[in-house]
Every structure is written in structure tokens, then in C-alpha cells.
Simulated assay, not measured.
Amino acid sequence: MYMKLNLTEIPRVKTISKEDFYNNYVKTQKPLVIEELTTDWPAFHKWKLEYIKDIAGEKIVPLYDDRPVSHKDGFNEAHAEMKMSDYINLLQKEPTNYRIFLYNLMKEVPVLREDFKWPDIGLKLIKQLPMLFFGGEGAKVFIHYDIDYSNILHFHFHGKKQCILFTPDQTPYLYKVPHSLISREDIDYDNPDFDKFPALKEAKGLICNLKHGEMLYMPEGYWHYMKYLTPGFSMSLRAYPIRLSSLFKTGYNLLIMRHFDVVMRKWKGQKWIDYKNERAIVNTHKNLKI
């Protein structure tokens, strides 16, 4: 039985004061789309794929696709490499699963730093160079939550991108894989199989479509699934978690969980990956008495 998820539109504003943003969204940990936060940035007018190709076309960039997690993969290990100009040509020519993920292009091309402004919006942003993300039409970023529980300002440029979020309290319905930050990779969040994954019927999520220059605020620990509706790219700015519980979870993820998972992959190989995927179903159905 294939049905749609229970999704509600994320609220939108054109602009907002930093006091209202912090009090009504950061403190309450509710997502928001701000439509006109970037209109006074040079990036708003310049950041198109052709511009990136012109200034960074010769750079060799790491590419990721949607293949299942393997015990042979290193942490954030790329699946392929390509010149940026060739990659953008591919994006503009046809749909592709290849994505650029968490890439520090500004380190390679410092002129990009002049194109954006650190927004004064009530969050103490981590002043490291922002990471960029690129994808072609139909490319998907598998559902996950971030290891460091950051509050994220996610800006999109060139085209449209769909974002589906789930609050942390929806985790029991999402078939979380133990000792990791992801759900089962065989779940199609565009067209979920409720016979195979019945707990998803209980999940309540949030959705928005970002256009050029729009920003999505994602609170700490939120699950997010991204789909490029057209070729485009995004930039994320991050702020430390504000909740003490999130800081403890961050420490656990970075100091214990990640290293434990690496050791188990080396020891058990693919059996460890298969075991975790099986436990995702068993644990979810057991906890919900399905």
C-alpha cells in the first residue's frame, strides 16, 4: 500500500526581526522559511550555476550518489570526482544522482566569501566557512539528522528544492537505524510503502519548497530529507545547540557512537550493516507494538 506522508506546510515570512525569530522559532525550536533574507547579498544576483562554473570550473569536486551504505565506505567518503565545469554541464543536461555534499568550495575559491553576509538574526553562528551542496533534478539527500545537533540556516540558490522535516519526537515512527543518524535506506519518502513500514503512517512531518534566495531554519536534531526539484545548490550556516540535552547528545555522537560504528564495520563488515537495518524494523515495531 503506497500512500503519502502526513505533512504540513512550514510557515513563511518575507522578513522577520531577530527578536521575533529568536523568541518565536529558535527558543520554541520551530522551523521557518524566510523569503527575503538574502535580497541584499551579492549572492542573490550572482549565485547561479553558470557563475559557479565560471569561477570554479577547474576545481576537482567530490561527488556522492544514492547507493546504499556499505561497510567499505569511509566516513563521508566520496563515490566519484569530476571537474566542477563538467559536473555543472551534467546538471544542466540531464537528471543525475550525483551530488556535491558538505563541500568547502569557499576555501578553494575565496572570492565567494564576498558574496554573502552573516545574518544578524539572533543566532550565534559558527564563523567557519560555510559548506555548499549541489544536486541535479530529482537528486535526493537521504533522510538524516546532523551529528552535532546544530541549528541550521539553509539557503537555496538557482531553482527549487523540496525539504521534508520531522521533529525529534517523531523518531519512533521513522525506522531509525541503531548507532547511526539515518533511517532505513529502502524507504522512499516520496512514495512510502505503508505495508512494509506501517509506523510511517503515524509520523507527522513538515514540508516546504525553497526558491532561489530563500532560507529554511532547521532546529537542532530535526530529521531532514531533501530533493532537488531542479538543478541547483544550497549553503548552510550553523549555530551551536541551545539545549543542554542536545549538547550531551552531540558529545555522545562524536566521541562514542561514531567510533563504535567504525570499529564494528571493520570487525563485522557487511553483517553489521545488515544487522542494524534489521534492528531498525524490529525495534520500531516492538516499541509501537505493531
Rank of each mutant, 00 (worst) to 15 (best):
H71A: 15
D73R: 13
E77C: 05
A78D: 10
A78W: 08
H79E: 08
M82V: 02
K83E: 14
K83D: 10
Y87Q: 13
Y87G: 10
N89D: 15
N89K: 14
L90S: 06
L90E: 13
E94G: 06
P95K: 13
N97C: 06
R99M: 10
L102F: 10
L102H: 14
N104C: 08
L105D: 01
L105R: 01
M106E: 12
K107P: 03
P110F: 00
L112S: 01
L112P: 00
D115P: 02
F116A: 08
K117P: 04
D120E: 11
I121M: 02
G122C: 07
L123Y: 04
L123E: 01
L125C: 03
K127T: 02
M131Q: 13
L132G: 00
E137H: 04
G138T: 09
A139L: 05
V141S: 03
F142D: 04
I143K: 00
I147D: 03
D148F: 09
N151A: 12
I152S: 00
L153R: 00
H154E: 09
H156S: 11
K160R: 12
K160N: 05
K161D: 01
K161W: 01
Q162C: 05
Q162T: 02
L165N: 02
F166P: 01
F166H: 03
P168C: 08
P168A: 03
Q170K: 12
Y173G: 00
Y173L: 01
L174E: 07
P178C: 01
H179V: 08
H179M: 11
L181V: 10
I182Y: 11
I182K: 11
R184V: 13
R184Y: 10
R184N: 15
R184H: 14
R184I: 15
R184E: 13
E185S: 13
E185N: 11
E185K: 08
E185M: 12
I187S: 04
I187V: 05
Y189S: 05
N191R: 07
D195L: 11
D195Q: 10
D195G: 05
K196I: 11
A199Y: 11
A199I: 07
L200V: 05
